[in-house]
């Protein structure tokens, strides 16, 4: 199961925030990935701000990318703003990437 969730996490790296140029995993938007039932993935995530203009585009992409993975039958994307995202959530790799830009 862990391997499958790692695959989901890796796939989510292809979803890049179009404003920050950074993938949503390193951006710290993914709070948790769980397999609630066989083939059913539950993702809890946030956006950089509640009024994010590209928010719906990112959520659609998360759903689309994960659905395409083999063995995934259903994706449940749960959106939360608690805790509110801050730049502190960006991974070290993400910070290095942003500083290179």
């Amino acid at each position: 199961m862990e391997a499958r969730l790692d695959t989901v996490r890796e796939a989510l790296r292809s979803v890049v925030d179009p404003e920050l140029h950074l993938n949503i995993v390193d951006l710290g938007l993914i709070y948790s990935i769980k397999e609630s039932a066989p083939g059913k993935v539950h993702i809890t995530m946030t956006l950089t701000t509640p009024g994010c203009p590209v928010g719906s585009a990112i959520l659609q992409a998360v759903e689309r990318v994960v659905e395409q993975l083999p063995g995934i039958e259903e994706v449940d994307v749960e959106l939360t703003f608690e805790p509110r995202w801050t730049p502190e959530f960006i991974t070290d790799e993400g910070r290095r990437f942003l500083n290179m830009l």
């Binding site: 709070y31 719906s56 994307v77 959106l79």
Partner: peptide, 27 residues
């Protein structure tokens, strides 16, 4: 990762009552 308090769920193209995510109302 800090403890999360889910507020709502995203269901594809369906409109959700959350700022910034209402696809239908986007100008």
């Amino acid at each position: 990762m800090p403890h999360c308090h889910p507020q709502t769920s995203w269901r594809g193209d369906k409109t959700v009552n959350l700022p910034g995510l209402d696809v239908e109302s986007r100008p």
